[in-house]
Design a protein around this nucleic acid. Structure first.
Lengths: 121, 121
DNA sequence: CCCATATCTGCATGCATATGCAGATGTGTA
DNA sequence: TACACATCTGCATATGCATGCAGATATGGG
């Protein structure tokens, strides 16, 4: 099998893994720094079980790494740059959607780049 | 509904749209320049009907644009930069996969950046 | 040991997507 | 008009993922 096809599969796996609103918000939350499951759950207003379910595949694909401290599991982005990379994708979001929201995309994008990240290396 | 959630939805839609090996190869093919459906089908060794099916959602989300010339429909990337952006994602592909292929990721990545693109601007 | 907390894993249902194929649409040519 | 070519659209089946919930595991305190 040609390498080109292998690459496209791995890339597709990665994209599929990221292609969920909750997981994107989760990654955005981790951009602000290390967080435990309950804290993420509270920030995203979702049950902790759901967060754990989302974290499992992200952990398997090394998108996030975890560290245990007592009963809590702290998660962080393996590649902090992935958050910035995701924001760049807004460039390619359909124009109709941008205008439909009644707000400039730059404003919306600011929501993802604000909040003083701790680990933005 | 908070804008942050809206953004995560749109972004997830985009990622889901791209998260298919054939569509990624299709985009990579278009990076080389404008192509008609049959030419893409031949390059990817897939039936033209399948290519058309993949192009439909890409067209709907303005990832690609089309131009008709006689019986042929020529497609091109709306944002040529999306191809380079996708290549950057290889940075985040699980390390185990990289080593498992027995080849340096840089070599594989070269497959996606070679071939003298016409519209890489 | 018993219990509460924090998180993980497994399972069932429902929904979305991929695929293959048939048929429709549009275009060029005789 | 008839026909071939290029592409699109619609439909049926199968597969995969999301969700919600129950139960399992691990840790800390009494």
């Amino acid at each position: 099998m040609p390498s080109r096809i292998i690459v496209s599969r791995e890339l597709a796996d990665l994209l599929r893994l990221l292609a969920h609103p909750d997981r994107l918000r989760l990654i955005e939350e981790l951009r602000l720094g290390e967080r435990d499951v309950s804290t993420i759950a509270a920030a995203l207003d979702l049950p902790a079980t759901r967060i754990s379910q989302h974290l499992a595949p992200l952990r398997a694909h090394r998108i996030v790494e975890d560290r245990r401290e007592g009963r809590n599991h702290f998660y962080r982005l393996t590649h902090p740059g992935i958050a910035a990379w995701l924001v760049e994708a807004l460039e390619f979001v359909e124009v109709r959607n941008r205008l439909g929201e009644g707000a400039h995309i730059e404003k919306v994008r600011a929501l993802w780049t604000a909040d003083a990240p701790e680990n933005q290396g």
